[in-house]
Design a protein around this nucleic acid. Structure first.
Lengths: 134, 134
DNA sequence: GTACTAAAGGATAATTATTTTCCTTTAAGA
DNA sequence: TCTTAAAGGAAAATAATTATCCTTTAGTAC
């Protein structure tokens, strides 16, 4: 994935910090502000938390990334990809993408609500296979 | 709904503040800490925010209530009722219950993940009929 | 009813998370 | 290069949540 092009497409300046943030999100899958700051700080020791927050906001606004929230969890952020649900492990706190085109699946069910749908967030939470064993 | 019995069932002391909190949540459907504090303060002018937070936590732990989180929104709380999805209006920020037994609907899809499912959170967001008109 | 005790409430301080401010630096385009 | 609007960084300010500590009260036994 080419982060420079992605940024330019949304009229956001291409800065090394932004490329780093996108790259880390891409690699992590789902990452909290705290963890992201720890990691990005290794690449840019002087980066400010304010810079991170500002970029998260501008990326959210431009739909480059998505916020994933669940009960008991800090917000996590992911690159905006194809629609999918999330599996959340309540033990280790990790999200896992779960391919599921919920929109088509539930289209009919939601249709009767007369809402103009924009997006859906679906999180199934429980215990992942690994945590079930330990 | 009898809040006293609900509290006793979970070995929580029945205090006027708790009954008030549950009653307000029940009436509101989905309510933020801020709004809840405004309302409960009318009944108990000297109630402390700390008391509200403590009670929210103990009620969450005992599954009396549920936290509902969505992007761009503060957490809201609701009485724990039958499984349902949520419709979130991005315009007015209101949640609306959407009867949908997602568990049975998606049972098969999730089964292959080998997670031990505990619960699911589903939020469809868009613009509600009322906001579409204004 | 009275006494006892663990739990709950309230005030406040402390902590954590997020946003704002303000000044410096830099990417992008002329 | 030169210009400038946008972005970065440091620090202060604000907002949200949690912890502390002392007082009050619900629940239980008598």
């Amino acid at each position: 994935m080419n982060y420079e092009i992605l940024l330019k497409e949304h009229a956001l300046k291409v800065t090394p910090q932004r490329v780093g943030i996108l790259s880390l999100m891409d690699k992590a899958g789902h990452i909290s502000v705290e963890d992201l700051y720890t990691k990005i700080s290794r690449q840019f020791p002087s980066i400010s938390l304010a810079t991170l927050y500002k970029n998260i906001h501008s990326m959210l606004k431009n739909d480059l990334i998505k916020e994933v929230k669940a009960a008991n969890m800090k917000s996590k952020y992911e690159l905006n990809k194809a629609p999918h649900a999330h599996l959340l492990c309540e033990e280790c706190g990790e999200f896992k993408d779960f391919p599921l085109d919920i929109n088509s699946l539930l289209e009919n069910a939601v249709k009767q609500s007369h809402y103009k749908m924009h997006e859906s967030s679906i999180i199934f939470s429980g215990i992942c296979p690994a945590c079930q064993k330990s």
